[in-house]
């Protein structure tokens, strides 16, 4: 059995990973922690930061900084989850890719997993149900677990 966990760094995706680890432990399943980094997110965040702080002259520098921080942050989260998997005796691996979240998630999720686990919300918090969830949940062939 292979379980895919979609990790975007949010609290909910980490809670999702905990559920997936619990299942993988009982089923002796292989867990894949998967994350998609979208450069457009760094660009938008940097531009809005620059606009709000009236410092658009440094927007490109902001963007590079945000992009590097996004990569570092997700690697740290993955490392922490890997440590937990190791402590729990769960066979786990990490995949981090770049591109459009929707496309990459669908491509990976429909490549032979028995379960896909994801958080209900994204990094924007509980303002609304995650847009990625609405876009992909019906298009993934395997059962999808949504965690709050």
């Amino acid at each position: 059995m292979r379980i895919l966990v979609l990790v975007d760094g949010s609290k909910w995706s980490q809670k999702a990973a905990l559920h997936a680890i619990a299942i993988a432990k009982k089923k002796e399943a292989k867990l894949v922690l998967f994350s998609v980094l979208d450069r457009k997110e760094a660009k938008a965040l940097a531009f809005n930061m620059g606009l709000i702080s009236q410092d658009l002259a440094h927007v490109q520098r902001f963007e590079e900084k945000v992009w590097e921080d996004m990569k570092r942050s997700i690697r740290e989260i993955m490392t922490n989850l890997l440590v937990l998997c190791r402590d729990e005796g769960v066979n786990c691996s990490v995949k981090i890719t770049e591109g459009s979240a929707r496309e990459k998630v669908l491509e990976e999720a429909n490549s032979g997993y028995s379960l896909v686990v994801m958080g209900a919300y994204g990094r924007s918090g509980k303002t609304r149900i995650g847009s990625l969830l609405e876009e992909v949940v019906g298009r993934i062939e395997a059962p999808v677990m949504v965690v709050r």
Binding site: H19, L115, V137, M145, V146, R148
Partner: peptide, 15 residues
């Protein structure tokens, strides 16, 4: 199902 997934507070498995 979309409505349920949006409103429930517990984890949901949609199969």
């Amino acid at each position: 199902v979309l409505k349920v997934v949006q409103h429930v507070l517990v984890p949901v498995i949609v199969y």
